[in-house]
Design a protein around this nucleic acid. Structure first.
Lengths: 339, 339
DNA sequence: AATAGTATTGCAAATGTTTTCATTTTTTGG
DNA sequence: CCAAAAAATGAAAACATTTGCAATACTATT
């Protein structure tokens, strides 16, 4: 039982040659049905499990796709990872997952490691990465795809939304509602092009209304409900209040909403709040959050398909895909009560 | 540049034999410093990347650990995956991730696939799995660990909390507060031993107070804020109200809280609510959720360490680890106003 | 300067598959 | 029943490494 069960043992047990066993797995139509049956039975008897490492060595695909994310446990990425993984499993691949905690140097190291494992393809979050990383991937000629953010001009095809546009959407919305005293609540921008673009979009749109986020209302806070809640609580204690609060993502908005609720402020009566992302739960918040939908599931699924295509049809020059972000108006925004 | 860069090419470029190159990687102390330098330079020049598949074939560890979860995008698992992945990466392994959507048949197939990839170890969520799966893992002698739930009697070592105890904790708490009209809000129990145990714990504790959850108040709902909110909204519309609502996990509790807030009910004044899990965000909810802390990060980290130990020291008979669940009282529970 | 150690390196076999090509077996048609 | 064609199988080389063993190159002693 504990004798190594390799293809040779199977061959012996089935009284055929190893070649035939191999063929029976890979090109069943080339082996006689009766032999196949003998082999299958031997496989079962010995509890044989194929060794992909040995296959991979022959230039055969490893059947793995690398996925490197900043972190798993942000609502944003969890959804993305889930849909990506579902879709890619469906296509017969297995995911090699790693997280770098927004450290792009670390990301490079992880990419290397994945290459050692000979992943058939690689998916990265965001479009900005170390030149070193891009160089490595280009040189090794690994099918690579950039997730979450979309631009035409990225180093590799990207599948995602235009985050600048997402920011612009909320900026324009609160501008149109008449708000002129606007605060911003964003996560740290380093190593996070998504947040950066969103912010730029917000500012650009606001500028169109002659609005600028003043420094006192320009808050940067870690990505968490707790941190956002605390930051907003502090903002509230400062006295002078904005009429609108634009949050860089829904999690931050949730924190803000909780802080506001605790302070007894009415949303949107006293203050307008927006998020970006439309995470699971935002629709069901009380009050329901007005935000911009960036369909993570769709992005994950499309990305999986794109990279699988690129892997199986080596020549297929996949182009990126733009998933359009969309403002979804719910109950946290109100026009500025005109004086 | 595009010539395959294998160890032989490196050897040629460095004017040494392949054996020496290999040794330089694996037992650097056995090769002269000057030779090592030549090799390193050749490696850099050729952009050589080691091929783990070729190593794995020699019985050398693959450097991967499989992690099979029901789903990634539930807050519970995201946190667990993140901490597990951080810790396991730290230890030099890479994660192979797959999700089965609570389909234990599917889980078996995934486990097989991971075995094909020759994972060095495997982590599964929950302690109940198909006999077929356990058999496979036992036969292949793969270091396996069961996450999230803890019992002594599990087929493989388990690292997690006693979910029955977690349930008992909340049950006892609301019982002690004097509540006798109690509703339960749980996720589907099939393929989910964690939820099952919690529920059993709740019922056992409640029974100690002579309390039983009546059928009308025994609600099963998908794991999501939206579903929970809707389910509770429906409960509220039925007229007769419980004085306490015990939720199988924090996400469901959030949904309940939103529904209650929307209905204008005061928590805990009008109704007591509890969760289980203490997810990120529960502490900062308004009102802050009373729940049972099951420290996902700790479980992930401990599990990673345990399995790595088992992998590197093959004989080390690792025992499971029990992370004690703990009631954390916040603002959603109040004693029953005595008549 | 010769000898015995010790440190370094290379040779060749081994790892578990797949695949090309040759060989054997079976089938088909006359 | 035979030859030719087709189908099925096997032998051996190839894939990218590692490693035990033997060979060579240094160092330190005397």
């Amino acid at each position: 039982m504990d004798k190594k069960a390799d293809i040779i043992a199977v061959a012996r047990a089935a009284r055929v040659s190893p070649s035939t066993v191999s063929r029976s797995f890979n090109h069943p139509e080339l082996v006689k049905a009766s032999t196949r049956k003998k082999i299958d039975s031997a496989v079962r008897r010995l509890g044989y499990i194929r060794n992909r490492a040995a296959q991979t060595i022959h230039g055969i695909r490893s059947g793995t796709v690398g996925l490197i994310v900043p972190t798993v446990d942000h609502a944003i990425f969890a959804e993305l990872i889930q849909s990506f993984s579902e879709a890619i499993e469906e296509l017969g691949f297995t995911i090699l997952l790693a997280s770098h905690g927004y450290d792009l140097q670390r990301e490079y190291a992880l990419a290397r490691k994945m290459l050692e494992h000979r992943v058939d393809g690689l998916a990265l979050i965001g479009i900005e990465h170390e030149a070193e990383t891009f160089g490595l991937l280009k040189r090794q000629n690994v099918p690579t795809i950039l997730l979450w953010n979309y631009t035409q001009a990225s180093a590799f095809p990207s599948v995602g939304s235009d985050n600048f546009e997402a920011g612009r959407l909320v900026g324009a919305h609160v501008g149109q509602l008449g708000h002129r005293h606007v605060a911003g609540l964003f996560p740290p921008l380093t190593g996070n092009d998504r947040a950066q673009y969103r912010r730029d979009g917000v500012e650009a749109a606001l500028a169109g209304f002659g609005v600028h986020i003043p420094e006192i209302w320009d808050i940067e806070t870690p990505y968490s409900v707790a941190a956002a809640k605390q930051a907003v609580a502090q903002l509230l204690s400062q006295g002078d209040l904005p009429t609108a609060l634009i949050c860089g993502n829904d999690v931050l908005a949730w924190g803000a909403l909780h802080a506001l609720s605790r302070a007894g402020l009415n949303v949107p009566g006293d203050i307008t709040v927006t998020g970006i992302g439309d995470f699971k739960g935002s629709r069901d918040f009380e009050p329901a959050l007005t935000t911009v939908r960036i369909p993570a599931r769709q992005i994950g699924a499309k990305a999986a398909k794109a990279i699988a295509t690129r892997i199986t049809a080596a020549d297929a020059e996949i182009t990126g895909e733009h998933v359009i972000p969309e403002l979804v108006q719910r109950d946290t925004c109100a026009p500025l009560a005109t004086v």
